[in-house]
Each structure stands twice: as structure tokens, then as C-alpha cells.
């Protein structure tokens, strides 16, 4: 064993193999990138409203309580399918109204219940958020999550 696997041979296998896997990964990345752009996220256009919503989602760091498509903190409900859960995924006006109402009602102040902070948002920003969440809901996530509970 030790004669066959010398140190320099082990090193060369490491360098060569790593380059090989990096190349394969790079190729698959290019393919995946174009798959996202041209197939899995096309059921709703990426409008200015959606962009504004994503920006608001990030500025308020919603991800550090919620999950979005299962990624984030695990302290608050999944929001990647919240528009489906609320039954408004195909109704932009109802979606904006429900989300706006929800945000305005926080924090609930209920003793012993996890609190969502108060966010000072304009009507456009709230509409952007609901459009962003509708857009995310419509991505092809290979039918994840398993049910509407998220």
C-alpha cells in the first residue's frame, strides 16, 4: 500500500482530481443558471415590483426569523408558499391587501407568543413584498414543501 501510494502520487491525484471536479461543477453551474432563467422561474415576470419586494425582504432581514424555500432561520413560518396557504397566489390585489394587513398588525403583543417586529413600510413596499412572495411561490421547487403548512 505505502509503495503504491507515495506522497507525491497522493498530491498529484489531489490536484488533478480537484481540477476535474471544479471543471464539472463549473459546467453544471452554467447549465443550471440558464435553466433557472429560462425554465423554472418564468411563470411570473420579474417585474420592478418583485425587485422592490426582494430588496425590502433583504433590508428588513426577514430571513433571520423565517425560512424561504426552506432556507433561513427556523423561528417563524415558511413564506415560500404563504401566498398559496392564504389562497391569494393568483390575485395580486388580495395578496397585497392580506400581507399589508398582516404586517400592520404586528407585533401582536400576545404574551407567550413569538413576536414579529413592527416594520415601517410604504404601500409600494408592501405591494412589492407581496409580489415578491407570489413570484417565489410560483418558482418550480419540485413540489416542495410537501403540503401547504410549509
Amino acid at each position: 500500500m505505502s509503495e503504491i501510494l507515495t506522497k507525491s502520487r497522493a498530491r498529484n491525484v489531489f490536484y488533478g482530481g480537484s481540477l476535474f471536479f471544479i471543471a464539472v461543477f463549473a459546467g453544471l453551474t452554467v447549465q443550471s443558471h440558464s435553466h433557472v432563467v429560462s425554465r423554472s422561474t418564468t411563470s411570473m415576470p420579474l417585474t420592478e415590483e418583485v425587485r422592490l419586494g426582494k430588496e425590502g425582504w433583504e433590508r428588513n432581514s426577514c430571513i433571520n426569523c423565517h425560512t424561504l424555500h426552506g432556507e433561513g432561520a427556523y423561528f417563524a413560518p415558511e413564506v415560500g408558499n404563504v401566498m398559496t396557504r392564504w389562497g391569494v397566489v393568483d390575485d395580486p390585489d388580495a395578496a397585497a391587501e392580506m400581507l399589508g394587513g398582516w404586517i400592520d398588525a404586528q407585533p401582536s403583543g400576545i404574551e407567550g407568543r413569538r413576536q414579529m417586529p413592527h416594520f415601517e413600510l410604504t404601500d409600494e413596499e408592501k405591494r412589492g413584498l407581496s409580489e415578491f412572495l407570489r413570484w417565489a411561490d410560483k418558482m418550480n421547487t419540485q413540489s416542495w414543501p410537501p403540503n401547504d403548512a410549509g
Partner: peptide, 24 residues
């Protein structure tokens, strides 16, 4: 060298375990 070879050979493409449900 053996350890780091197994790390990169598995870990690079292993990134795929985060690509199941995000539209890839």
C-alpha cells in the same frame, strides 16, 4: 493529501444537496 482529496472530490459536487428545492 488523501484526506483533502476525498474532501474536494465529494464536497464540490456535494453542493447539489442544497439544490433540490430552489428551482435548479
Amino acid at each position: 493529501y488523501v484526506i483533502v482529496a476525498t474532501a474536494l472530490f465529494s464536497g464540490i459536487l456535494g453542493t447539489g444537496h442544497h439544490f433540490y428545492w430552489i428551482g435548479l
